[in-house]
């Protein structure tokens, strides 16, 4: 196959259907940007999980006099209760799961509360007896925190056992839903991109039916006849996917790093390196999709 001939054929095809080619570029650009955004969200979720799950602890809240009666019929947890909990945490059954734990008494809880709500009126009214004494348990494997939760839930004198992860999981499930929505939109747009590519290729083949007829008669191989058309779709989709990966990098640089990270300095966000990792994925899927779509279209349209 001669390169010059091929380039000329592709160039002719592209210039003949400029508006269709532009629409292929736009549709692949938008759909792959959505794919990339979904990828960024997943990367963000992953990053937040490793960051926050690592800090997440299981809190064993002991009863106070002001606790609801159905959870704490005996009122304030006695020292017996504390001894039972402490013994259980040191027991061989739980030590494989527990990395470390510490006890937070009324005074410590009160100090922490005052610090957290320093500007809030509620800080003035709260009494330290109202705040739970708490065993903070750091688990070795965040995925097995349920063991701790189950071991202490319902134990007399324990008001509630709470895995901090459950708060985080709500955030993650929102982010997850957002990324699934992005993937869903991307899937619909990719489907329309595929249809658009195959329509364009058919149109292109139709406008060149004279040439194709002669090529077949003089014995050009199928491959030779079809390759310019397939590459035509691939070139257009490649331009679209390069634009999309550029857009994904731009989203990270200008929105995530330039805006979100400035507003929420304590949260870790995806960086440009994550976006660069997504780049070959975006471009690759654009190229493969276009090759399959146009190859399929031309094969159906051109039979020997």
């Amino acid at each position: 196959m001669k390169f010059g001939f091929l380039m000329r054929e592709i160039g002719q095809g592209l210039s003949r259907n400029v508006s269709m080619i532009v629409s292929i570029i736009l549709v692949t650009f938008l759909s792959l940007t959505f794919v990339g955004t979904a990828g960024l969200l997943q990367a963000q979720i992953g990053q937040m999980k490793t960051y926050w799950y690592d800090k997440a602890q299981v809190a064993i809240y002991l009863c106070t006099d002001t606790s609801p009666a159905d959870a704490c019929p005996q009122g304030e947890a006695s020292s017996d209760v504390k001894a039972t909990v402490e013994a259980a945490l040191k027991d061989a059954a739980l030590t494989p799961f527990v990395e470390r734990y510490y006890f937070e008494d009324h005074q410590a809880a009160y100090d922490k509360f005052q610090e957290q709500f320093a500007d809030n009126a509620v800080a003035k009214y709260v009494k330290k007896e109202q705040l739970n004494e708490t065993y903070w348990v750091k688990v070795k494997d965040p995925n097995k925190s349920a063991v701790i939760v189950e071991s202490f839930t319902g134990v007399a004198g324990v008001e509630e056992v709470r895995d901090q992860r459950s708060y985080l999981d709500q955030i993650f499930s929102i982010l997850n839903a957002a990324s699934i929505a992005a993937v869903g939109i991307a899937a619909i747009m990719l489907a329309s991109a595929v249809l658009l590519i195959s329509t364009t290729i058919r149109l292109s083949a139709f406008s060149r039916r004279r040439e194709i007829g002669i090529m077949r008669l003089v014995g050009a191989s199928n491959f030779y006849i079809q390759l310019p058309f397939i590459l035509e779709g691939v070139v257009a989709a490649t331009i679209g996917s390069v634009l999309a990966s550029g857009a994904v990098v731009a989203i990270v640089v200008f929105f995530v790093q330039g805006y979100l990270a400035q507003r929420l300095p304590l949260t870790s966000f995806v960086g440009v390196d994550d976006a660069l990792l997504l780049m070959p994925l975006i471009i690759g899927s654009g190229v493969v999709l276009a090759a399959i779509a146009s190859g399929f279209a031309i094969r159906r349209y051109l039979k020997i």
């Binding site: 004279r210 002669i214 003089v218 014995g219 191989s221 020997i304």
Partner: peptide, 22 residues
């Protein structure tokens, strides 16, 4: 088989009433 047809057609020439030039 279809894939051998191009090679066969290279050994043939065809002309038509309507010329079929580009």
């Amino acid at each position: 088989p279809s894939r051998k047809v191009p090679a066969l057609r290279r050994k043939m020439g065809v002309v038509f009433q309507d010329f079929r030039l580009l």
